[in-house]
Write a protein that binds this DNA or RNA. Structure first.
Length: 466
RNA sequence: UCCUCCCUAGCUCAGUUGGUUAGAGCAUCUGACUGUUAAUCAGAGGGUCGCUGGUUCAAGUCCAGCGGGGGGAGCCA
């Protein structure tokens, strides 16, 4: 076919008003309607949620060619941009020539014109990006990733590439996937019969990272403001709509930030990102609001306009105990909050995001700064409606003595932590940081209910297809 | 990992106290229609009722095991 027409993406075509212009477009057919005289072909190229209507006067097209233009096929169209006489779209393309790049057999192509369940789409994750829903989710996901880099870059943070392979299992954030080149059938053994990891690729036992925080702290003690944003792996047998074995996490780490600065940053960042989604992905959000969650747009706007509620763990316990609410799990000071407790606080009592601080030290990680009361640490968890914990963070313990005491107390192998302890030995500083689960953010922003639907190819127990 | 629910046509589902030949909508195919919007109208094809075993004269239906999936819980981001 003639190649002298300039190719446009659908997103741009829909905005053009110079009717009569000759253009080319390429994309995938969503539907074909019509009669003997005329065919209406909805073409989507992923640049925007909307499809463009291509109109083919069937007198001018080969019947055999038109038979190949089916839902799912890929075509290139030369045509003229015209004002649409029909309802539903401002412009359409009067086709002059159509080339079929790839057919999609109508009898076996799994995606139909009608809606599919999200569960079914998970089974065809290789094709689900072609749906309106996943187009929207993936564009929003991109915008959020870009917005995160923009947010931190604009504020002078350095993007730190923390390692994916790690030899430290000390963070305690969860079970690690082992990384090895040893023959798992017959690994080399020591004289005492244990697997000899000194013969392994790295000369020691290694795994995939469960957190970039510790390395983030190292860099924060030099660059001041850093963040990591990378894949994170947890070999936990978690089967919930909120957990993945492979997910992405953003972990800012800031020298000279105390717990309040930390909370301010977390709240400001979340509001910025929600606003960024509204600014850059409104069409997609509108679609999701219409199809899945009628309160999505209202909820997003509410988040931006209202301050998060901040209170201590102790105050939260008091509220829960005074609530008169029947909980499946008892509430008492010292016990970790259960999902039902967090949900009560966020969705029943405060009706807004909640930041809880100063948790009992015995239920939190070793690196959190110990309060003077000897009982609590400067932890902060940001709890969101529907999602639960979206951020977990703390001011870090900067005292060498206190940190070492805690490491010993919790039986963390000190020999693996020498480099981390060195930061407290040499030029230590008050500092803070947190971890934001990227997919949980996307859950909130898209209104999707299952975390497997906000990542292109989810990795969960018993599932690594695609 | 625990609790619970589900698995019937390509998809979404119905299927009565166990009883003859398992149904519908959509999708697909064929036909009709001069501009459709999840087009419409008419017709047709399409099933190892997740798998294995058991109970019974008789199992989509009852029982057991296994597999897959959803929701809740735990672990957390």
């Amino acid at each position: 076919m003639k190649e002298d027409f300039a190719t446009y993406r659908v997103k741009d075509l829909l905005k053009l008003t110079d009717f009569g212009k000759e253009i080319n477009l390429k994309g995938w057919v969503r539907t074909k309607r019509g009669n003997k005289q005329v065919a209406f072909i909805a073409v989507n190229d992923g640049s925007i949620i909307h499809s463009i209507q291509v109109v083919a006067d069937l007198g001018q097209f080969d019947e055999e060619l038109m038979k190949l233009v089916t839902t799912g096929s890929c075509i290139s169209v030369n045509g003229v941009l015209v004002e649409s006489p029909g309802q539903g779209q401002p412009v359409e393309v009067q086709a002059r020539a159509i080339e079929v790049y790839g057919t999609a057999d109508a009898g076996t192509y799994p995606l139909q014109k009608k809606g599919h369940t999200l569960e079914f789409l998970r089974e065809i994750a290789h094709l689900r990006p072609r749906t309106n829903t996943f187009g929207a989710v993936l564009r929003i996901r991109h915008a959020m990733a870009f917005g995160i880099h923009k947010y931190y870059n604009d504020r002078g943070f350095v993007y730190l590439h923390s390692p994916i392979i790690t030899g430290s299992d000390a963070e305690g954030a969860g079970a690690m996937f082992q990384v090895t080149t040893l023959d798992v059938e017959k690994p080399p053994r020591t004289e005492t019969g244990e697997v000899d990891y000194s013969k392994d690729f790295f000369g020691k036992h290694t795994g995939l990272t469960v957190s970039g925080q510790l390395e983030g702290e190292l860099a924060a003690m030099a660059l001041g403001l850093v963040y990591t944003f990378g894949p994170t792996f947890r070999a936990e047998n978690s089967n919930t709509p909120r957990h993945l074995a492979e997910f992405w996490m953003i972990e800012p780490e800031m020298a000279f930030y105390d717990i309040t600065d930390n909370m301010d940053l977390a709240e400001d960042m979340l509001k910025y990102l929600v606003q960024y989604a509204l600014d850059t992905c409104y069409d997609d959000l509108e679609f999701l609001n219409k199809m899945y969650d009628n309160e999505l747009l209202d909820r997003l706007k509410f988040i931006i306009e209202n301050p998060f509620e901040r209170l201590s763990y102790t105050e939260a316990i008091d509220i829960l105990m005074a609530s008169g609410q029947k909980f499946e799990f008892p509430v008492s000071w010292g016990l970790d909050l259960q999902s039902e407790h967090e949900r009560y606080l966020v969705e029943k009592h405060f009706l807004r995001p909640v930041i809880l601080t100063d948790y009992p030290r015995d239920i939190k990680a070793f690196y959190m700064k110990q309060n003077d009361d000897g009982k609590t640490v400067r932890a902060m968890d940001v709890l969101f409606p529907k999602i639960g914990e979206i951020i977990g963070g703390s001011q870090r313990e900067e005292s060498y003595e206190k940190l070492l005491a805690r490491i010993e107390e919790m039986h963390i192998p000190e020999k693996d932590m020498w480099w981390y302890l060195d930061t407290r030995k040499f030029g230590t500083a008050p500092h803070s940081g947190f971890g934001l689960g990227f997919e949980r953010l996307i859950l909130f922003v898209t209104g999707m209910a299952n975390i497997r639907d906000v990542i292109p190819f989810p990795r969960t127990p018993q599932n690594a297809e695609f």
